[in-house]
Design a binder for these strands. Structure first.
Lengths: 328, 328
DNA sequence: CTGTTAGCGCTTTCAG
DNA sequence: CTGAAAGCGCTAACAG
């Protein structure tokens, strides 16, 4: 068995309370006994039982990170950002994919109440009422990573979706002189997709450009399919603005398969700036999102909430975006 | 406060033992009381306190996954593989980057003994004696994800590094008729790098091909630098076999900057088959590693060990590799 | 079938 | 400054 404070106490011939005090840097111990106890813990290579400690203190040094799935780069960056920050605060990160939302609400509820974690970060593409309701009376702090709309009353960090899409569209119309634009949006219940679309539409309207919308799924495959269909028709837009890079890459596949060239025959731009975007040919013009910052910021907010139990001020943070001009 | 079994017991007018029994599917409870208690737990929306449960049972439904860092795709895939499998077994995954190995051994030791996790998966590039020693007398199961050499006495999963490199080299010599090869290896204390290099060398020797080695760091930057230096010299090899794709991409950067073309002027191949490899131009010929399987297999082994406490047979699993021929 | 009770390892009053 | 003792929520003998 691992040594316990009881054993240490008996060896040091003091009470367990004293040992506990030393371990918790309580000042009320003579330097002499402190030294003695420290020496013994050292020799026995003692590690406090965190479970026991968490149990009695009714708090946890774990934070939960619930993701819809752990698949692409986007999630890695978030995990990384969260882990870095929480680790620096002495917390561990429990990563749980909500496994295709089979029962996101159940999973959230369990996490909220089983005492395992002291706080929780949830990445949701959209917030339904049921989840809102569950979250509302959570006793542990919750931070949302979300599209950005519809997060009334929650701490959240989101991407500057609207602004990024607007800026990109502005660039396409004003600098590139495109007059006929097409936007491939993401899943219709996805907040990020919604806001990017709105940014696109508003910019088009503002500058009187012709535009239309196609409905994708944020996957490479869906981008390819939509583009295939498009190329068969006889009304090509000047540019395809895909709501994420993966769909843009799907468009690349389709366009190249047809023997057309980007951007001469048709231009394609994306959103996210995933790793591959600068390596594909031609390098993809896109809206850069510093995703690691999303995770980091969410963790920062959460850590603050966990510390300052009484701080109930809602924090909403927006991670800015930037148009990256390459050659597509 | 969240409801406890005590409250449920008092409402149901039974003892806490009975409540505990129905919660743990103990048969020794009448259907009637079981129903009654279940109804109450339902109404109160009771969730057992996992910390308390783990504490008294002296086991944990958490498994720890220690990574050197959470940066690239390689780690995402592993996290994904591990999470999927453990989740299916009712376990959660604690992801901890060992944060640039500041003190990997300390971190491992803490994990091993603080009671938090019931098992642990460690990704190490090489195993030093100190870590081995710590691992040797662990009371919880440990599975290593490692290069493959030097893992005597541990459960481990590794990549078929040697075989993959050998196959690739064979292909380069036999099919592509290259006579003068160069290998950029990885960090010198990295087992994966070591074995890939050995596979390369042995194949070259077997077929009497000329070869030399350059020393990289597994980073894109190091690949670029080495290649820059190489292109300035007057002894170009027919092909550069980089020990991973990122260095191969670095070579691409260097070669393209010089205005040379791949593979006509010089060929480049890699190892890993990361996501971007098929998108760069020209698509990279490489050795594919099914990395998700690495995580999944490690988790599988760990789950088995956690279940069958008495099973002390060591399991070593090797994930196979495959040469992917593209156009580089 | 059900209740009583001890105790997991630790923190935290409360006395001394 | 130090010790005794209670108790966190739950499980698991042990009695009945």
């Amino acid at each position: 068995m691992s040594p316990t404070i009881k054993q240490i106490a008996s060896i040091a011939k003091v009470s367990i309370a004293t040992v506990s005090r030393v371990l918790n840097n309580d000042k009320r111990v003579t330097e002499k006994t402190r030294k003695k106890i420290l020496k013994i813990t050292e020799e026995l290579n003692y590690r406090p039982n965190i479970i026991a400690r968490n149990f009695v203190k009714k708090k946890s040094n774990l934070i939960g990170l619930i993701l819809p799935e752990i698949s692409d780069e986007f999630f890695t960056e978030i995990i990384k950002g969260v882990d870095e920050l929480t680790f620096a605060h002495g917390y561990y990160t429990l990563v749980a994919s909500s496994h295709k939302y089979e029962s996101l609400d159940q999973e959230i509820e369990t996490f909220l109440r089983n005492g395992l974690v002291g706080g929780i970060i949830i990445l949701v593409s959209s917030l339904n009422d049921k989840i809102k309701c569950i979250l509302k009376d959570s006793r542990i702090p919750v931070v949302l990573i979300s599209g950005g709309s519809n997060i009334d009353g929650f701490d959240a960090v989101s991407i500057e979706n609207y602004g990024g899409a607007f800026k990109m569209t502005e660039y396409l119309i004003l600098k590139r002189k495109y007059k006929n634009l097409l936007h491939i949006t993401g899943p219709q219940d996805n907040d990020d997709a919604l806001l990017r679309r709105k940014g696109f539409e508003d910019a088009c309207k503002k500058y009187n450009a012709a535009f239309r919308i196609e409905f994708g799924e944020f996957t490479q495959e869906s981008g390819r399919k939509i583009c295939d269909k498009l190329l068969k028709s006889n009304s090509l837009p000047d540019v395809i603005f895909a709501a994420n890079d993966m769909m843009a890459i799907g468009c690349y596949d389709s366009i190249k398969a047809k023997g057309l060239t980007i951007p001469d025959d048709i231009s394609v731009v994306g959103f996210d700036d995933v790793f591959v975007s600068k390596y594909i040919s031609p390098p993809l013009t896109t809206v850069k999102v510093q995703i690691e910052d999303v995770g980091k910021t969410a963790a920062e907010i959460l850590m603050r909430k966990v510390r300052e139990k009484n701080n109930h001020k809602k924090i909403i943070s927006k991670i800015s975006t930037k148009v990256i001009i390459r050659n597509s």
